[in-house]
Every structure is written in structure tokens, then in C-alpha cells.
Computed example of a mutant assay.
Amino acid sequence: MQSNYASSGQQPQEWSVGFCDCFSDMKTCCTACWCPCITFGQIAEIADKGSTSCGASGALYTLIMFITGCPMLYSCFYRNKLRKQYNLVGGGCGDCFRHCCCETCALTQEYRELKNRGFDPSIGWHANVERNPGLAMAPVVEKGMSK
């Protein structure tokens, strides 16, 4: 796990909510349980900074669910993406394990993490940027090789 964060020089942060704290937000928990494609689509749109829509991500999630029966194979990659974007504790195997054990808890935790970071996943990326223009800042580029 340390090697993932060595390049940033920062220690990973804890998630702002626990994995099993999904029942403290019953609305999100119920949506993630009964319509996980909606919760996933909202998370994916924010994680992708609007490059994919909630509808497209949710539809792909649903398609994967009907074809393979294992949509968590797709959603665990977005957990990994969020974890790296916000330098959160965890690892790739743990991300997939959490989604395989309890997809509802994993999606609820990710949704609430975004809310605690100032996003409202239910309104989408572009509405969040309109509300808070600072969200659309260019990403930090790490120093690499130069001429």
C-alpha cells in the first residue's frame, strides 16, 4: 500500500465515513440497495469529472449486471479511482473485496465521501461546478522528466 502514495509524499487519509455506516443515510442506502445503477452512475460522473454521464455509467453497470451478474467488477475500479483522487486509505484488492462483500455499503460509503467533500452527486458534475467553480480546476501534474 505504501508504494501507491510514495510519489505524492503524503500519507493516505481515512475515509470520512465508515464502510458499515450506510444505515446513517437511509435514503442513499436504500437507493444503493434497490437501484445500485443510479448510485453508481452518480459516483462515476463525479469521479470522471463529467466526462461520462450518470446515465451512461448507470446503463453500463446494468448491462454488466445482466450479462455477468457481477457489476462489482466494474464498480470496484471507481472505488479505486476515488481512493487515488483523494489519497484515501486502501488498496486495489481491498476495493474489489469490499464491493464483492457488500456492494450497497461500498456504494453508500463512496457517495457519502463525495458529499462530505462538498459534492452533491445527485445533481451531476456540471451542476456541482456551477455551484462551486473551484471544482473545475486543472489537476496537479507531477514533475517528471524534462529535456
Rank of each mutant, 00 (worst) to 15 (best):
N4K: 07
N4I: 02
S7P: 11
Q11S: 09
P12A: 00
P12R: 04
P12V: 02
E14C: 04
S16Q: 14
V17F: 13
V17S: 10
G18R: 02
C22A: 11
S24V: 13
M26H: 05
M26I: 11
M26W: 11
C30P: 02
C30S: 14
T31F: 11
I38L: 12
G41E: 10
Q42S: 14
A44N: 12
E45Y: 12
I46V: 13
A47F: 10
A47P: 07
D48E: 06
D48L: 10
D48R: 06
G50S: 06
S51Y: 08
T52C: 09
S53A: 01
S53V: 04
G55M: 08
A56T: 11
A59D: 00
A59M: 12
A59H: 01
L60V: 13
L60W: 09
L60F: 14
Y61W: 15
L63N: 01
L63H: 00
M65W: 15
G69F: 12
G69H: 15
G69D: 07
P71A: 06
L73K: 04
L73S: 05
C76L: 10
F77V: 10
Y78L: 04
Y78H: 03
Y78T: 01
K84G: 04
K84S: 08
K84D: 06
K84T: 00
G90R: 06
G91A: 08
G91F: 05
G94I: 04
D95I: 11
C96D: 00
C96E: 03
F97H: 14
F97L: 10
R98I: 00
R98D: 03
H99R: 08
C101R: 08
T104E: 07
C105F: 09
A106H: 14
A106G: 10
L107Q: 00
E110N: 15
R112T: 07
E113I: 05
L114I: 09
K115F: 03
K115Q: 15
N116L: 15
R117Q: 08
G118K: 07
F119K: 00
F119Q: 00
P121G: 08
S122D: 11
A127P: 01
N128D: 09
V129L: 09
E130Q: 09
P133F: 06
G134V: 02
